[in-house]
Simulated scan of single mutants.
Amino acid sequence: MPEPRLPVIALTVGEPAGIGPEISLRAAWSLRHEVRPVLIGDAAYLAMLANEIDPAIRLMAVSIEAVRNYGLSAIPADRMSVIDCPLSAHVVAGQLDPRNGRAVLHTLDVAIETVEQGWCDAVVTAPLQKSTINDAGVKFSGHTEYFAEKTHTPQVVMMLACEANAHLPQALRVALATTHLPLKDVPQAIQPEHLLRTIQIINIDLRDKFGLLQPRILVAGLNPHAGENGYLGTEEINVITPVIQQAQSMGVNVSGPYPADTLFQQKYLADADCVLAMYHDQGLAVLKHASFGLGVNITLGLPLIRTSVDHGTALDLAAKGVGHADIRSMQVAIRTAAVMAKNKTSS
């Protein structure tokens, strides 16, 4: 009987001066019997780093042109493939160099191509430094926005998730109605059409990529005490509640709005599949307190699967040399992408 096919995961290694290349190598190697990782980055640099981490790590470099012509089937099972995206400047750990900005951005283009062409099943991204790409002369606001633009996706949703741990009795998923906005701009950004589409995207992706037949979504209010019947704000009355009712009429299992300060309790979360927070810190402060370094960032609404770690480039750790970075968030990101790929294939 043939061995089951392993999910093929494209893994961009992120900012070369940060911990991205190290955690990508270590996490991918540790999970090589669960997934088939395809690293995307500078092959020579990754080979040097791999030898420093563990001489047992075996890599095989290929060009994107070779992959276009022959695919990835020729890579031996005992090696991890690296699609070579050469850097422009020598890497000094902990020191950013804008000369490498365009090469880092190119790894994202290659990763998107690998999924669109069917060579890989999902993309996992290591952290990159936005400033390096902007300093290279390319306007760049982040992975999420870039993937949306490149895949012609009009609206995506940022969701962070974590597995059960010592601080959390069950898995937790928190999606965001707004992301990286100044707090003063959040109320105006919560518009009925956008909020309804956000709820629909969460519902569809939890069903199709997480295998949940009828996801239960809890929605947080914007204001303290969810507006206190209008005394502390009217967004709940004028926007959030009508949108929830509209989504319910469309068959979505969604409820709220709930006061955010009491929503994150076991009695509410026990049967919930996702919490929709109105703004970044409202939801992510809770999740990161319970799971920082163990979580995964997931972009919902894309035509492809994309996950990432829940932390940044950690230049200070990279400057200390290999062995200081925690790979657990990267491992969770890879495993989550694999599960989503399997669910999407079977749906």
Rank of each mutant, 00 (worst) to 15 (best):
V243P: 13
K267V: 14
E236G: 12
Q245N: 14
P259R: 08
T262C: 10
F264I: 12
L263C: 05
M250H: 10
M250G: 07
G256T: 06
N253K: 12
Q246F: 01
E235N: 13
M250K: 14
Q246M: 11
E236M: 03
V243H: 06
Y258S: 01
G251M: 08
T241H: 11
E235G: 06
P259T: 05
V239N: 00
E235D: 15
G251N: 04
Q246D: 10
P242W: 13
V243D: 11
D261W: 05
A247Y: 07
T234G: 14
Y258K: 05
I240V: 12
A247L: 06
V239H: 01
P259Q: 10
Q246S: 14
E236P: 05
V252F: 13
P242G: 02
Q246K: 14
D261V: 11
N253M: 06
Q248S: 07
P259W: 02
N253Y: 10
I244W: 01
V243L: 09
Q265I: 06
V252G: 00
E235M: 12
P257F: 07
Q266T: 11
G256Y: 03
Q248R: 13
K267I: 10
A260P: 05
K267D: 13
P242A: 10
I240F: 11
I237H: 03
T241N: 11
F264C: 11
L263S: 04
I237G: 00
Q246G: 06
